[in-house]
Design a protein around this nucleic acid. Structure first.
Lengths: 322, 322
DNA sequence: GACAAAACGGTAAACGTTTACATAAATAGG
DNA sequence: CCTATTTATGTAAACGTTTACCGTTTTGTC
């Protein structure tokens, strides 16, 4: 009888014990499908991602699993690349997987088509570090402003004053947030941002390289470059090298994302690490809260986590000759 | 009507189309719990592992996912470390997760207690690279003999004749298999294994170091060492360095496993890579075959995959002075 | 055009739980 | 001791599918 197993009221202690003993003796396990059917819940949470970097995927997964541990929920992994690459395909897969909710990491979390499909079916979801539509659904992100502030403050504290900036794609919220953080740090240090030293990239290596060349070609060269992601930062290092400048002696460079390339680059890149595990934990946490109905309606739909600055060999104090 | 959606016979084309259109219009998705209930299947396959190495986990997962793609089955990840570390706990979790089958990677696949529990509940399972009880359940492994052969043949082909061997824990099947492979390669090359140059370790760094010191202390020093895993191989490198020998000039060293340390060691270690992805694919494949009932009863319960030799900087021809 | 056979469509039982409800038993109050 | 109240237990409906069964319609053959 289900009442005994589930510690429901209106059942005597004696019967409860007997039932439980019998269940243990037969090693009986309740049928989850039947429970799901009646509860109208599968107790399955999906996780989609596409990042090729193993460490990212594992961090993401472990974060979510950490929250799901000791819960009834189980984690189903649904990587994007294992499916046709069209968001509609992923959407169908998600909707057919019978999930109670889904965690969306980039790039799935930024597919409006996918979000439309999911919302249409009323499938609860949480987005991890989305780059656009930041007010849609439950969002867990990094505080880009704070991160930008930290990395800029690091450069300024080393003594750099002529600092070049390579922006990412202006349509990305991260790009604007990081720039805002730079601004705050410059303001606090009483240093003005030299607009002629601000170039606009698009997060790709190639464009980053071109912008870096332009910045380094100025009559008064910057002593440091803040790039809004690692790809553009390594492009800046390459550009510097091609101009006969060495990093960090002649030029300090900092990136963003703690990507694989930031570690393998030479010199290794000072960069900002996203607290992936923590964010995934939080995303799972808020999704569960939503599913279990004890969602604070006054809880913010978006939550920002703190970054971590990784100081590596690509930044140093400007040489006194400068 | 379910017959129309499921392309069952005895339903007219017209009705079928109409039903399908209506279903699409309402974007109806069949309730998986109800389907599971009647089919007595959850279409969930579990994956347990404990390896801290992200690349291993991702390879494992991607291999399994690669096979599950386009199947009804979904993959549920159940890492060991996220649970209490006792195998009984993991067993309970597995049995309660309502899985149709489970893929067991080390160390879970080597827990007799766990296997007992799983078998008792008739939960189908496949073991990936088990180290003991190799004839229990469905087993997907690396052909250790072939791998041992390859790495030994590599050493011999470089010209080494006095080759030291550091065995792993003799109770591990891998240890015996790899040694057998060494033997075959030596036989083929017409070189005798010098028993005085064979030491027994236990796969740990410390013991590996001690054994390596002993081997290198012989009056006639070996020019190469075959270690049965990477930890012991890097221990051998350390031992050589402590004796003033440089690798690979004075001593060539090869390991096994392509572990993290084999890449970060200096010099990077020549080692044998397990085809993890491929094995996970195969494990999922055979598990599915079993679940779907089209299991060849004459198919072997164990399958060996081919390794991959990674030649890196720790092996070279013996210096002519030797 | 009649008959057999095949194709089709409707109905209901079954899957294994939970839960609401009804009934029965125990307890308490008058 | 009887009634009112609480507490315990049994029963049946419900969850959303699939499938077996049965009756009806269509098709094909002579």
């Amino acid at each position: 009888m289900s009442r005994a197993l589930n510690d429901a009221p209106h059942v005597s202690e004696a019967v409860r014990r007997k039932v439980k003993e019998a269940a243990a003796a037969l090693d009986y396990h309740p049928n989850l499908a039947a429970q799901s059917l009646i509860a109208r819940r599968s107790y399955l949470i999906g996780l989609t991602y596409e990042r090729p970097s193993p460490s990212y995927v594992v961090e993401l997964q472990n974060g979510a699993l950490g929250r799901l541990e000791n819960e009834r929920y189980r984690l189903v992994v649904l990587p994007f690349n294992h499916v046709a690459s069209r968001p509609e395909e992923l959407g169908k897969l998600l909707l057919r997987a019978g999930l109670d909710g889904v965690l969306l990491a980039p790039p799935a979390c930024d597919q409006p088509v996918l979000l439309d499909m999911i919302e249409r079916q009323r499938l609860p979801y949480a987005r991890i570090t989305p780059h656009s539509d930041l007010d849609r659904g439950l969002v867990v992100a990094m505080d880009e402003v704070a991160a930008g502030h930290t990395v800029a403050a690091h450069m300024l504290s080393l003594g750099h004053r002529r600092v070049g900036i390579i922006l990412g794609d202006p349509s990305h919220a991260a790009s604007r947030g990081r720039l805002e953080g730079y601004r705050q740090a410059f303001d606090e240090a009483g240093v003005a941002i030299d607009d002629s030293l601000v170039g606009t990239g698009d997060f790709t290596y190639d464009v980053g390289y071109r912008v870096a060349l332009e910045l380094l070609d100025r009559p008064v060269r910057p002593t440091a470059i803040l790039a809004q992601n690692d790809d553009m930062a390594v492009a800046a290092i390459a550009a510097a090298r091609d101009l006969g400048l060495s990093v960090p002696q002649d030029l300090s460079v900092a990136g963003f994302d703690n990507s694989e390339v930031s570690r393998t680059a030479w010199p290794p890149l000072t960069t900002v690490h996203q607290p992936v595990r923590e964010m995934a934990w939080d995303a799972a946490n808020r999704l569960i809260a939503m599913l279990d109905g004890d969602a604070d309606s006054d809880a913010p739909r978006r939550r920002d986590h703190l970054h971590e600055l990784l100081v590596r060999a690509s930044t140093a104090a400007p040489s006194s000759a400068e």
